[in-house]
């Protein structure tokens, strides 16, 4: 237990301070799951059920963006935050200039960007399989798209949302690279993974404390996974039954 006490609540660089990083992880992960979920389901619905020109091409383009390695997106995105956007001398968006815990916003933004292509792919796969009759009946009744989305589609795709939610949760919780760049490494913003990676590099001789730390970081994803597992199964199920 002493190991746990020390890794959790010690306050020097060499002790764990994990409690602080744990809170950072939570603060990073929750919004980073919610934003892509909402945006991707809206987009996936539009791509599947609203008729407009070029929608198939747009979908394919978003799908293809999955391949862009996030390592190559780090520098431009960091520039976007630190210098803003200027087009032809006009400042379209000023620099963010965030300090301390405000940097969470950068991390949310980055994770949301990187998650969207896969999220749209997965949810589109699901939403486009919903019965056509259902949609047409609703349209005939005069329901608008937002209404159909809220009252018909959302309840039907809850399992898919839960499924993607788990994926995204696991990904963000376990992410190291994005956090390193956009959150920095201090105990004000860095998540558990960053801290553990540091401890792993320097604690060759003190495995017991590292394993205590590793355990703390694995417990949460396991709880989330085990409690949402049912949704996960059903979620992907419905998406893939019909061709």
């Amino acid at each position: 237990m002493e190991n746990y006490q020390e890794v959790l609540f010690g306050s020097s660089s060499s002790s764990g301070q994990l409690a602080s990083y744990f809170i950072n992880s939570l603060a990073i992960t929750i919004p980073s799951v919610l934003f892509p979920l909402a945006f991707a389901s809206l987009a996936a619905y539009a791509l599947a059920w609203i008729n407009f020109r070029g929608r198939d091409w747009l979908y394919i383009a978003i799908f293809a963006l999955q391949i862009v390695p996030l390592q190559m997106a780090l520098v431009p995105l960091l520039k976007f935050f630190s210098t803003g956007v200027t087009l032809g001398g006009v400042t379209v968006m000023p620099a963010w200039d965030l300090v301390d815990e405000q940097k969470f916003a950068q991390v949310w933004f980055a994770h949301t960007c990187f998650a969207l292509p896969f999220a749209v792919f997965l949810l589109h796969n699901f939403i486009s399989q919903l019965p056509k009759d259902l949609m047409e009946a609703a349209r005939v009744d005069g329901a608008t798209h937002p209404k159909i989305f809220r009252t018909i589609v959302l309840p039907l795709i809850t399992p898919a949302l839960a499924a993607f939610g788990i994926f995204q949760f696991l990904w963000v919780w376990n992410d190291l690279l994005v956090a390193l760049i956009f959150a920095g490494g201090g105990n004000e913003t860095a998540p558990l993974t960053v801290r553990l990676a540091e401890m792993a590099g320097t604690r060759g001789n003190e495995w017991q404390r590292l394993t205590a730390g590793a355990f703390v970081s694995i417990v949460v994803p396991l709880i989330v996974f085990l409690s949402l597992q049912r949704y996960f199964v059903r979620g992907l199920l419905a998406g893939s039954v019909k061709g």
Binding site: F39, I62, L65, V68, M72, A73, V75, P76, L77, F80, F109, A110, T112, C113, F114, L116, P117
Partner: peptide
């Protein structure tokens, strides 16, 4: 978001 985060890069 995709434009900023992935297309531009």
């Amino acid at each position: 978001l995709l434009t900023v985060g992935l297309v531009v890069p």
